[in-house]
Design a protein around this nucleic acid. Structure first.
Lengths: 234, 234
DNA sequence: TAACTCCTACCGAGCGATCGCTCGGTAGGA
DNA sequence: TCCTACCGAGCGATCGCTCGGTAGGAGTTA
């Protein structure tokens, strides 16, 4: 019972924790190359060299260049969806809180995992066959989560928007857009940015930054963790 | 004098007018290919075939594949900047109106010229040398225009934002993001979308959709024009 | 314990296809 | 005689990918 409670508390905050080097070295090399030159602009030789492997050495691990992209994109979409569901679950039954945490989660992901999110968004057209279909489905599901919460908030009279569907898209777009410009060496930490974006998003729904502005995220909670998931600062 | 006034009135609304087929056929073929497969995913043979030209025929008009991209991107950034300046100029001295028209202009451009805007944003990394530098400079200038108006509005007490800089970036991102998802066959016309986005943007600055919601854009002003710049409907 | 058989984890060399681009033309109007 | 507007053929480079290996560790047998 005691253990279960502890576990539950830990799990509840799992969506906020981002460890570094989550990708195997070879996928990380591919990701870095894709970010720099795009999928078609990247050669298999570049990726292999970056991973300190020969070309056949690379093909021992992945069947094709396409397989590298698929693995990266699938990792990204699964990670985001799991985190999003955790965030909404943590919020309980309050739509306002569900919305706030979901937007924080979205912003947090696109700042912490900006390279991953950038490729997942920009290289959809380079995905072949059903990988592309599956990816688009995930994107739509992500958008739908925000739509649903906003619609629920509208019904409850908590939110006020002239065009909820457009507002929802605008909010999701501004969050996913973070991946395009966010730099780790910039002024804002992902956590600070996420709180600000959640507040901006709330404004579009007629809810001021108002109550509970001091989110748990701004408290001294350790957020960055090492490869084993343990805090490495804070 | 009379002529000059008429010209001035016409010019003042020029930023709202979008004619089709603004690009020479060859550049349009290149743009369509870049949108479908990306710059590196596009072969010069594909572009040539699309333009009903042989490969040497293509090279008669443009020196290289890179030159095609540069021409497209330069056209896009010049068009947007000129329109933005016209929009702000039309607004007169009211920051609130300057902001509203600038956001409408931004949204309008990214909906009407979504392919152009999409490539200009996503293929920056494929630009070589000073073309890339020049393009980034233009992007920054565009962002700066919004920053400046928001800052002015803050000083005048018209706008209220906790973090004006972040709000500004969020607004610009959500507008440029239109190019990623907008479809001409969707539910909203570019003009309807632009009005909605301007209102959403105003909300983030603590200004309700409020006054003057019926913008000139929703009035029966003809907006689409033919290749010669004349209205073709309305 | 030495020899043998697997297995994983690679690599040097290179294949066929395709890439961006060019050479040396032609056709037709001024 | 130019010039513009093209094109068939093809060059050298590079692409994604593969062939036929080797190195070394684990497990099995004599």
């Amino acid at each position: 019972m005691k253990v279960e409670t502890a576990k539950k508390v830990e799990d509840a905050a799992a969506w906020r924790k981002y460890s570094e080097n989550v990708l195997p070295p070879l996928l990380q090399a591919a990701l870095d190359s894709f970010v720099e030159h795009g999928y078609h602009g990247t050669t298999i030789r570049t990726v292999a060299a970056r991973a300190k492997l020969s070309v056949p050495g690379l093909y021992h691990h992945y069947a094709s260049k396409q397989a590298l992209l698929v693995a990266i994109v699938q990792f990204a979409m699964t990670d985001l969806l799991v985190r999003s569901e955790d965030a909404v679950a943590e919020a309980g039954s309050s739509v306002e809180e569900q919305f706030r945490l979901l937007i924080e989660c979205l912003a947090l992901f696109h700042a912490h995992r900006s390279e991953l999110a950038f490729i997942a968004a920009s290289e959809i057209r380079s995905l072949e066959g059903e990988s592309r279909t599956a990816h688009i489905k995930s994107r739509d599901k992500q958008q739908q989560m925000v739509d649903d919460i906003i619609n629920q908030g509208m019904r409850e009279g908590v939110f006020d928007a002239e065009h909820p569907k457009d507002t929802s898209r605008a909010i999701v777009t501004m969050c996913t857009g973070i991946a395009q410009w966010y730099r780790r060496d910039g002024e804002l930490s992902p956590e600070e940015l996420a709180v600000r974006y959640a507040n901006i998003a709330r404004m579009t729904l007629g809810v001021g930054p108002g109550s509970r502005r001091e989110s748990v995220l701004t408290a001294p909670t350790p957020v960055l963790t090492d490869a084993r998931g343990r805090p490495d600062r804070g």
